[in-house]
Every structure is written in structure tokens, then in C-alpha cells.
């Protein structure tokens, strides 16, 4: 980024700077977002405030415009890249501060047979932004992986993602397995992915269906009682 732009960002007052960072994140400008966050930190902004009021808020708008067909997948990925950069700056600060304890644990993974992960990664990012500790199992997860992760991490919520018509039913299979083992009544399961809908989520007995990343993060907070 050029010195000239550098000076302009630093010249902005807090409100204008926040608006500028949001715009830059929307435009997928990674370096600019990084620098904006740096300036806010220098101005003694709390890391969790930067995360929730600037980065997450900007990404929420991105999500809405994606849903409404104003932004497309490549643009969303650029935005996500910019957000990731900003979060990378904040993470060590958040981890070091006593104030920031996780609101809950969320295990998330794409189901067996499916290696789509863009949506899952976005949801993971927004969950982290909403204060969750996210354990990401990656892609192509058989039921055993979910069971092992539940055993190891004792999550508050389990999330599954599927983008293929052929892999969606596998979510039902995992839920059945959880039910058989008496885990389901204790562990809310959230499901998501473009071809899913509420009807499908209900049919497979999922606790809830997350249409997009921002809404899913809000729902997750509500599920664990952090939104009331």
C-alpha cells in the first residue's frame, strides 16, 4: 500500500476509519483492512470490539449482498481473505486477554463424500467472530470423525456442511448415530449448505438450519443462551 493512502487512513477520525475499513473489507482489500485494524489497535480499541463491530459487521453485509445476488463467490472469497487477515492480527491479542473467554465450543465439518468447504470456512470464521472456539474437522468426514471430535472436545454445538445432493443424506445418518448413542438430546446439531432448506433439516431431525454464515453465528449464540 502506498504512503499516500497510508496518510489518508491515519488522518481519518475513528468513525470514518471504521466505515473505511468496512468498505475496504467489502472490496476485499486485504492490506488496507490489515492496516486499518492496526491503526485502531494503536488507538487503543479493544480487540473484541474491532472484531465484532468492524470485521464481523462488515462481513455480515457481505453475506447479505451475497444472498441477494449482488456479490458472487469470488468476491466473497476476497472479502473473507481480508477478514482473515484482520482476524489474524486480533487472535493473539484476544487469546492473551483474560476478558476474552470463548462463549462455547463448536465442532464443524463437511460430510463424507463432499469436499466443498468455502461455506463451512465462512461459517467457522463468523462463529469465531461471535466468540466461539471453532474446531474445524475439514472435509470428507465420516461419522467416526464427528464422534471422535465430540468425545475429545465436548462441543456445545455440532455443525455439518454439505453442498451435494448426494451427500446431504449423510447428515441424517450422523444424526441418527448420535441419537442411538444418546448424544443428540444433549448436543444441538446445526446443518447448512446451499441445497439444504428448513424442511430437509427438520426431516433429518437437525436442531437448526443455517442459511448463511452471519445468521448461523447468531443462531449458535442463541442456542447456547448468549443472545437473550
Amino acid at each position: 500500500m502506498s504512503d499516500e493512502e497510508d496518510i489518508i487512513l491515519r488522518d481519518l477520525n475513528d468513525n470514518d476509519l471504521v466505515d473505511q475499513i468496512k468498505d475496504d473489507l467489502y472490496d476485499g482489500l486485504k492490506d488496507e483492512v490489515f492496516e486499518g485494524v492496526e491503526i485502531l489497535l494503536e488507538r487503543k480499541w479493544e480487540a473484541n470490539l474491532i472484531l465484532s463491530d468492524v470485521l464481523v459487521e462488515a462481513m455480515r453485509i457481505v453475506g447479505i449482498d451475497f444472498r441477494d445476488g449482488i456479490l458472487f463467490v469470488p468476491e466473497v472469497l476476497q472479502c473473507a481473505g481480508a477478514m482473515k487477515g484482520g482476524m489474524g492480527q486480533l487472535r493473539p491479542i484476544l487469546a492473551a486477554s483474560d476478558a476474552q473467554t470463548s462463549v462455547g465450543k463448536f465442532v464443524i465439518g463437511t460430510v463424507k463424500g463432499d469436499i466443498h468447504d468455502i461455506g463451512k470456512n465462512l461459517v467457522g470464521m463468523m462463529l469465531e467472530g461471535a466468540g466461539f472456539e471453532v474446531i474445524d474437522l475439514g472435509i470428507n468426514n465420516p461419522v467416526e470423525n464427528y464422534l471422535a471430535a465430540i468425545d475429545e472436545h465436548k462441543p456445545d454445538i455440532l455443525g455439518m456442511s454439505a453442498l451435494l445432493t448426494t451427500t446431504m443424506p449423510y447428515m441424517g445418518l450422523v444424526i441418527e448415530e448420535l441419537d442411538k448413542r444418546n448424544i443428540l438430546k444433549e448436543l444441538p446439531v446445526m446443518v447448512g449448505g446451499a441445497p439444504l432448506n428448513q424442511e430437509f433439516a427438520d426431516a433429518i431431525n437437525a436442531h437448526s438450519y443455517g442459511r448463511d454464515a452471519a445468521m448461523s453465528a447468531e443462531m449458535a449464540r442463541t442456542i447456547i443462551g448468549k443472545n437473550s
Binding site: 453442498l163 451435494l164 445432493t165 446451499a194 441445497p195 439444504l196 432448506n197 424442511e199 430437509f200
Partner: peptide, 9 residues
């Protein structure tokens, strides 16, 4: 002449 093609039913 389409498959299910991710239309979610």
C-alpha cells in the same frame, strides 16, 4: 435434461 443439479429439490 437436467440432473438434480443442486436445486435442493
Amino acid at each position: 435434461a437436467y440432473g438434480e443439479c443442486g436445486t435442493g429439490g
